[in-house]
Design a protein around this nucleic acid. Sequence first.
DNA 1: GCAATCCGATTAACATGTTAAATGGATTTC
DNA 2: GAAATCCATTTAACATGTTAATCGGATTGC
Lengths: 178, 178
Amino acid sequence: MRRTNEVLKMPSPKPVKAITASIPMRDFSRSLPMALLRAREAVMRHFRPSLRAHGLTEQQWRILRALSSHGEIEVTELAAVAYLLGPSLSRILRDLEARRLIKRRLVKSDLRRNIVAITASGVKLIEAVAPSSEAIYAEIARRFGARKLADLQAMLHLLEGSLLTMPIAGDPDDDLDV
Amino acid sequence: MRRTNEVLKMPSPKPVKAITASIPMRDFSRSLPMALLRAREAVMRHFRPSLRAHGLTEQQWRILRALSSHGEIEVTELAAVAYLLGPSLSRILRDLEARRLIKRRLVKSDLRRNIVAITASGVKLIEAVAPSSEAIYAEIARRFGARKLADLQAMLHLLEGSLLTMPIAGDPDDDLDV
DNA sequence: GCAATCCGATTAACATGTTAAATGGATTTC
DNA sequence: GAAATCCATTTAACATGTTAATCGGATTGC
């Protein structure tokens, strides 16, 4: 029933190949990425309808939120804060600018750089969405438990930190035999 | 510093509007969806290179894994197991079938239904990817701690369960005043 | 100073997420 | 038993994820 732990307790990674040949892989429906995906979706499906009602996607919302709390910010930094890849951000910024929710300007000292800011309309939109968004968040916290929620977030950050220094197998900047 | 908890401790959702007008929204970089997204990405970036080296995306891998552990399975059930939406699944199955990694057949008693199964080539591909995948998973468990990993997964499942019965604001099947 | 290189941002190309609509086959209903 | 409805799957349309390539503008090296 808890075959997962048997594998996880393995201290040495050497015999993995032999093991996977005899024992089926741990049921992927219990894999960590799947658990994270399912949990995130369980949360997000409560937020999406409200955002959608205001004509926003989740990513567009993230960008507006980031801009409203950071003021003017460069595109690269915005990508880090809103946790979006460059290409996605480029497309979304083009769209948000056309909708006059953000504005951009060049950096005179380095013409490659862009500085983005939210407009008054953008702020108004945020203020329109925020109440229902906060209410949903509060209800989620109430159901799951505020303490457990804090614990969960702490563990998630810890996990992120643990993997930050883990080398990525097969990457060119690693010197291994893959 | 921990303004988040101040908001979360709110028992009644009524004064939210007034609050959000005076206090800025909790920093979204600490929001639960963001924490889940970041944690998941921290994990997945270790798996993607290996999958990619074998010509698979994460979703294609999920489907093959599901098929290898479930044998023959209907498309709808496969969508639930692999946690994919119908349209995504349709496209991916078309692709995997063209690559002869899966095969499909109609259900004679109900021609709307499809039954999908993995092919020998599909199984071979899984066996080729599994070792490095398991090794990565083991290393992640080692770094984060097997116990904490189990605890985290338990909390994630609990969160999912907590939100399962929470009504979705603004949905037609709810009888509320939105 | 200019060729090579680096770097920020965008574009390209393809895969998936997301919602709505369509298609075609079963079920129900009267 | 034909019309209406339901249902499984696919298609459509648009937004984002992901990697590679491009494009201009800065830096470096010589």
